[in-house]
Design a protein around this nucleic acid. Sequence first.
DNA 1: CTGTTAGCGCATTCAC
DNA 2: GTGAATGCGCTAACAG
Lengths: 338, 338
Amino acid sequence: MDRDLTMKDIAEKADVSVATVSRVLNNTKPVSSELRKKVLDIVKKTGYKPNALARSLIKQRTGTIGVIIPDMDNETFADLIKGIELITDKNDYVILVTNTMGEVKKELKMFNLFEEKRLDGIIFSGVSLTEKHIDFFERYKIPTVVVGQTFNKLDFPSVTIDNFQASFDITEYLIDLGHKDIAMIRGPIYDIQAGKERLLGFKTALRENNYPVNKDFIVEGDFTINSGYKAMEKIWRNELKPTAIFSASDKMAIGALNYCLDHGLKVPEDISIVGFDDMELATAVRPTLTTIHQDQVEKGIKTAEILLDLIEKEENESYNIQLPYTLIERDSTCKRKK
Amino acid sequence: MDRDLTMKDIAEKADVSVATVSRVLNNTKPVSSELRKKVLDIVKKTGYKPNALARSLIKQRTGTIGVIIPDMDNETFADLIKGIELITDKNDYVILVTNTMGEVKKELKMFNLFEEKRLDGIIFSGVSLTEKHIDFFERYKIPTVVVGQTFNKLDFPSVTIDNFQASFDITEYLIDLGHKDIAMIRGPIYDIQAGKERLLGFKTALRENNYPVNKDFIVEGDFTINSGYKAMEKIWRNELKPTAIFSASDKMAIGALNYCLDHGLKVPEDISIVGFDDMELATAVRPTLTTIHQDQVEKGIKTAEILLDLIEKEENESYNIQLPYTLIERDSTCKRKK
DNA sequence: CTGTTAGCGCATTCAC
DNA sequence: GTGAATGCGCTAACAG
């Protein structure tokens, strides 16, 4: 490959100084229209493109932000990124995405890489905070915003929904339908928001209605369809059968639904099932799934907006933004049969 | 934010020259273990991280590659990226991902940005080639590989599956089950691989078995669930009803399936349905979907491997790699009832 | 083995 | 308005 064209080359061809070329390219200082045209012509003719590396080196800004998520194969995160990209693209930033698959080692590797590449900011989600993470962020001050979770030890702005309240609401919805024996397929407890908070909302709703919390009716899954299937299998082994299932994610709900369908149980006649997230999957299956809708794209948008504010206005407050959610009633739930 | 620590700072603190610091950091030339230790200690204590921008400026390599896809919300592309990342990560590259949503303008913007940022290579998929694209690539010689499609005008290496043959196979599979009246929900024709090739395979299989190709039995969708639903609706309006449906994507197949389910048609008893891709969705629905399985992660891996070869070995051949596929028989198909 | 020096490509003083 | 010179942080000759 030939050597890249540089500003010097353009300057020589246009018979001006590099400073002038720089000025017309960046509109940073007045240049006579004559020289401007001359430079622009050469630039167009040669297809010259400024070297962003050199520019970043001087300006101390790279125009790229790093995004760390567990797995973009999960529609939830894919949507989140789309929201982020909507905003970053509009502001001429670019995103460096990485899937950590929950591996702490990979997370730390990426954090380091982000630092070396001098990214302007970081967005991350689903990271389980270790001592090393804390060390990193205490030393390296970079604009950062967290999405879908919060940290107590580190004060980054965060955007989430009120997982506790949403779970509470959908549990009460089941209770209002007359259900008493409600089982929950929960996520891992170390996932504060989608695991712990949703479980808490569920339990609290039961308690406030004076229903007992039956330990056998709470089974853990890992948010996959398969784990939902397995969890349902376990729940159904109990003497007492629930008439409703609250799953902490749509995927696990689909797993539970399939278990029912595969074993001759009618949904919702025999058993009502609700999910959480409102992924595309929720309306792709039959019966369609009653669930909590949250707008991931919007979440990404908000997150990116906050980050860009942090970067450009150098604000430095820490706050948590809660986005709205809605309960969407579909065909997987009905009143308890007497 | 304080000024970053530089190599000069480290050199001063360790009382050596910057060259020495550079040498221990890059293991590029022998350094006495005494000095090496001294430098390493300071680096560790201060948390110094080299500036990748400055390094890239010299080495003419950024260690980042650009990935352009239509929409990573599509599991297909999400998996592809995961495959790519598996390889790039292992080789200490990083990827810049962008969703173009099919907008040519965005594609061109990103190509330009990639050039300015001096990325080491580009992978793209689902791009509809315009004159401007061609101009770009003729001027800017950057290692590039295409996935999921091929170009005749530009000779980039590409990795695909044999869409024609796969479609042919699954159509014959339906024919072997005794189906004669088979409808197809196809994709847009400008999508050479997933649209045109799959349609061709279908038609060819019918012709080779001396079945007529019924125009009313070929309806176009856009690969979404909803378009599959609509397409099925249209197909079912015909006087003659098909006993089997071949959909060019799982999503459209699910749409068709839902139309059937919503209108009292039994699948597969009344009508057999097959999809294409074998996404997670294919086993999430009931009945589970007979489909063509292709391994997107593997596709991403192969693609990235080829690109890295291109970059590091500066090879420059153009070839097309076809990955294997398999027909997976599930519950959405059965023999035609007499 | 180690240090000095010259750029990588650009933006930005500072003179004119 | 314009040009010459300085340096962003680093690597790679080049000497020693």
